[in-house]
Write a protein that binds this DNA or RNA. Structure first.
Lengths: 141, 141
DNA sequence: GTATATGCAAAGTCTTTGCATCGTT
DNA sequence: AACGATGCAAAGACTTTGCATATAC
């Protein structure tokens, strides 16, 4: 994914800050908050400002490159936008967020399309619980 | 549902404010924000404070009587807790939030229980789109 | 009477915005 | 050179908290 190309193609500029935000997001293992991204990019560009994180994320979202998820608390979490239908499993114990692939989201879509008169645009499915690792640890004790 | 009994049973007190918050929530047709509830109760108790709304809602949630939903924006929306598995359809056009009954949430639960090692505690499913009424209006124009 | 709940105001968290300056194109 | 992007600081939206007073039990 060449962000520079995408940005310029839409009349936007490629700045070091935007490039860095994208790099951090793209290589992230978890979902990141704006503050996470700010902290990471600041290591390279010390004067980097949180406002720019929000502005960049909003822009990336408009281009369909990034996606914000609400996982239950008041913060927004960010990830690279996935074309596929996935949802999030949030572990109450370790806090990890796992992407879960499956046809469940598609099922929801189909279910609602079938005569319920609701045109689905976006399905947000977040499941809270305890992940396998934490469950095992709890049992072992 | 006798809130007074429930509250006192757990060592809490039944105040006019709590009673009113509960009444507003119980008889509401839509999901309400803390501000909505504050405005409504203020009609009866003018000096009623928003802080008390939050404190009361938190308490009602702990007792399992109320439930907070995040519908995508930064606000929390409140409803009477339902024992059944339901999810929310949010219309992008008219803003209405519809409760949708069905076995989809149950399916998610079963799907994850079946060998994925994740113990499900809470399934939050919010679907954004266009409701039947708004769709028809759009087509008719 | 006593401990809990309230009102009020202040602070806290997360995000957005206005504006002068800087830098990509 | 022009105009969009940034940094900074201030404000905004929503929610929580500290503390003195009031009130349900």
């Amino acid at each position: 994914m060449d962000v520079g190309h995408r940005l310029r193609g839409e009349g936007y500029r490629l700045t070091p800050q935007r490039q860095l935000v994208w790099e951090v997001l793209r290589t992230a293992e978890h979902h990141l908050t704006a503050e996470d991204i700010h902290a990471e990019v600041s290591r390279t560009v010390p004067e980097f400002n949180v406002a720019s994180v929000y502005r960049t994320l909003t822009l990336l979202a408009e281009l369909g490159l990034a996606h914000e998820v609400r996982l239950g608390d008041s913060r927004g979490y960010w990830e690279v936008a996935h074309p596929d239908d996935a949802f999030h499993l949030v572990c109450r114990v370790c806090g990890r967020v796992v992407h879960h692939q499956g046809d469940l989201v598609e099922q929801v879509r189909e279910h609602l399309t079938g005569g319920h008169g609701f045109t689905v645009e976006d399905v947000d499915l977040v499941v809270h619980g305890v992940c396998g690792d934490c469950r095992q640890t709890a049992v072992a004790q």
